[in-house]
C-alpha cells in the first residue's frame, strides 16, 4: 500500500500494475468494491497532485471524483497502452485544467478544512514547507512536472503522456523549475 502510493516502480512494475489492471477489469464489470479499492489507492496522491493545481481541497475532491467518474464509465476502454497510473493521472490532469479554467485563478489561501496542522519541527519538514511555498510561485506546468516526477515518481515519457506534450517539453519544464527553485533555495537556505 505504502509502496504503491509513493513509488509505483518499487513493487517491481508487475505486481502493482497487474493488481491495478485487475481492478480496472472488475470495475468495467461494475464491481463497486474494486472501484473503492482503486479509489482509496489513488485518493491521496491525486489529492496532493491536484492541490498543486487548485490549492482548494473542495475543488481537488471534485476533480478526483470527476476523474473516477470517468474511470467508472470507461474502465472497459483501458487497453493497457500505458500504466494504469499514467492513464488515471492523465484524466485527472485534464479534468484539473478544465476545472481551473471554470473556477478562475486559485485564491492564495489554502482551504482551512483540508488543513490539520501537525507540525514537526524537523529540517525536512521545513524544507517541505518552503518547497510548498516556492512551488506555488512556479508556472502551473513546471509545478506539475515537479510533482509528477518527484512526488509520484513518473518517468519523462509518462509525464509527456499525462500532459500530452513532447518529452523535450517535459525536460525543459523540469529544467526551468529546478533553476527557479535553486535560486530560491540558495537565497533562503543560507550556510549549512
Amino acid at each position: 500500500m505504502i509502496s504503491a502510493e509513493h513509488d509505483p516502480r518499487s513493487a517491481s512494475g508487475g505486481t502493482t500494475e497487474e493488481r491495478e489492471c485487475a481492478l480496472l477489469a472488475r470495475i468495467a464489470g461494475r464491481d463497486s468494491a474494486a472501484m473503492k479499492e482503486l479509489y482509496l489507492l489513488y485518493h491521496r496522491r491525486l489529492a496532493r497532485f491536484l492541490m498543486r493545481i487548485t490549492t482548494r481541497y473542495d475543488l481537488a475532491e471534485e476533480i478526483i471524483n470527476d476523474t473516477f467518474w470517468v474511470v467508472w464509465q470507461h474502465a472497459g476502454d483501458f487497453r493497457g497502452a500505458s500504466r494504469v497510473s499514467t492513464w488515471i493521472l492523465g484524466i485527472a490532469y485534464r479534468r484539473g485544467l478544465k476545472t481551473l479554467r471554470y473556477a478562475g485563478p486559485p485564491p492564495a489561501d489554502v482551504d482551512v478544512e483540508a488543513e490539520a496542522a501537525t507540525e514537526e519541527p524537523t529540517q525536512r519538514a521545513e524544507l517541505r514547507e518552503w518547497l510548498d511555498t516556492a512551488l506555488q510561485r512556479l508556472p502551473l506546468e513546471q509545478r506539475m512536472v515537479m510533482e509528477l516526477a518527484y512526488h509520484l515518481g513518473h518517468s519523462c515519457e509518462e509525464i509527456a503522456a499525462i500532459m500530452q506534450c513532447p518529452t523535450n517539453t517535459v525536460k525543459t519544464r523540469m529544467f526551468h523549475a529546478r533553476r527557479k527553485l535553486k535560486t530560491l533555495l540558495t537565497t533562503l537556505a543560507g550556510p549549512d
Partner: peptide, 28 residues
C-alpha cells in the same frame, strides 16, 4: 535528491478519502 525527499515526505494535509468516496458512490 533533497528536494525529492522533501516532496515525497508527508505534508500537513489530511485528506478524508472515505467521505470523498461516499460522494462518488452516491453519484455512481
Amino acid at each position: 535528491v533533497r528536494v525529492r525527499e522533501a516532496m515525497r515526505a508527508e505534508g500537513p494535509l489530511v485528506f478524508a478519502a472515505e467521505s470523498s468516496y461516499q460522494k462518488l458512490l452516491a453519484r455512481i
